[in-house]
Design a protein around this nucleic acid. Structure first.
Lengths: 250, 250
DNA sequence: CGAAGTTTTGAGGACCTTCAAAAGTTGTGG
DNA sequence: CCACAACTTTTGAAGGTCCTCAAAACTTCG
């Protein structure tokens, strides 16, 4: 472990808050070999169809996962903030069915799949924590399906901004209500399944209704109650409460 | 284990094809207590917001998971066929963020969360198999997000029908190209994020182009190449190849 | 300070929705 | 086993949301 990897230590602490690790589990995780990689903005970490040997963890910066369709359009399926394990799933899945790329300069910790699987097998409490992380991932995907399937553009945009607000707040990156969202309207459109032109008009509408404020890439939820009502936002799907604990005797 | 639970035995065999179980893992799974429940059509198995104590497995029939929005519209986020574990995820997650209901008369095996977690902890090879099942789940959710986000109605519908065809084929429920899809156009519309009226017109278009044939609720992919091209369908996301195997020494 | 990228504006049109009602199918009780 | 009710599929027409194409204004960065 490098002393630079502060977010990773926080990640382990978060896993433990969800359920204490038994015995030497924490030491095993803290001792896992990591490879630090620095990326610029808009660089691919994993390309679609690759067979990565490592999972990646966001130490700082911002990354997204995406799929590109034959017609060239792109759908972003998730964003990942500092402290997120991006693709634990690739530890078990052989072929990546999506790509991962940065949006801003980003520091990534690469962890070998073999190490992840070994620790999960040797320490059931860690295996359960990883599994839970995957479940929260799946819950967020479900919510995104609902979002693009059943909400109009205004509701959809409000919902995504509220998700960002909640997730940035959870890692202490909201100050006086403002958080930095280094994502272009083009990329937001790719996440919401709309065109950049319509994305722009929707942002203008949200500002005009005094629901949000922006300057440069910073965002403030100005009217929280109005936004929550508009989006039908219920943060349950982010599962901040952590997993059910293990049954007795485990 | 009841002798009636044939699909469950097949499920265990499927997990093993993806990676052999060590020691007594298979016996532990086969010996898990199950509660058999019979449901009629359109009955709730789990309501949104409930805190279930058991996960459910589809022995026969068809179920879907859905979210209902404040405005009353519904989004179906997944369908589950015989042989599917529907909500392994609920074993770890406390509050259900979605509902589960049947579409036709259905036999469900209920398995206590404590038993699932205990077996996963005691037998790492089973824990890994469950984790992988969750990952495939998440991959399907991602693909649905892409589907509703970036494909038009015709492509979307073709994609969903191809997914059904592939999944029914995998459990031997396709005969001469035909499979039974006991889902109304209303429910298909809820899965694809469109209105029932437009769903109907899209089905008519697919039939008119001789891409599919239907009678009653049976479906035949008449022009497979045309459908695959239209939908941009790549079954990689269904991950039929199974997970990466465990590293040496585990 | 110039170049590249991002946001904004305008106008026309396609896709999908909404509302309403008819036709067809399935299931159930008398 | 038929008759009726409930549900599902189909049709029509008008309208709104979102897209496409094109270009201008604004920002950021080397």
């Amino acid at each position: 472990m490098s002393e630079a990897a502060t977010a990773f230590a926080n990640y382990i602490a978060k896993l433990e808050r969800r359920g204490a690790f038994a015995g030497e589990a924490r030491a095993a995780l803290l001792g896992v070999p990591v490879r630090i990689r620095h990326f610029g903005a808009y660089q691919d970490i994993v390309r679609e169809g690759e067979r990565p040997q490592e999972s990646c963890f966001v130490e700082s910066g911002l990354v997204s996962r995406y799929r590109t369709l034959p017609n060239g359009s792109r759908q972003i399926v998730s964003f990942h903030l500092p402290g997120d394990m991006v693709d634990l799933q690739s530890a078990l899945v052989i072929v990546a069915d999506h790509g991962i790329r940065t949006h801003v300069p980003t520091v990534i910790l690469m962890i070998a799949h073999d190490d992840i699987l070994r620790i999960a097998a040797e320490h059931p409490s860690v295996g359960r924590a990883f599994w839970f992380d995957t479940l929260v991932d799946a819950a967020i995907f479900r919510e995104w399906t609902v979002n693009v399937g059943r909400r109009n553009t205004r509701e959809r945009t409000a919902h995504l901004l509220l998700e960002f607000n909640a997730r940035f707040a959870a890692i202490g990156m909201v100050r006086d209500g403002w958080f930095d969202l280094p994502v272009t309207q083009n990329d937001l459109a790719d996440a919401l399944g709309i065109t950049p032109v319509h994305m722009n008009r929707t942002m203008q509408w949200l500002r005009g209704e005094r629901l949000i404020r922006t300057h440069s890439r910073a965002v403030l939820i100005e009217d929280m109650a109005g936004m929550v009502a508009l989006a039908g936002f219920d943060p349950v799907y982010l599962h901040p409460e952590g997993p059910r604990s293990a049954p007795d005797g485990v």
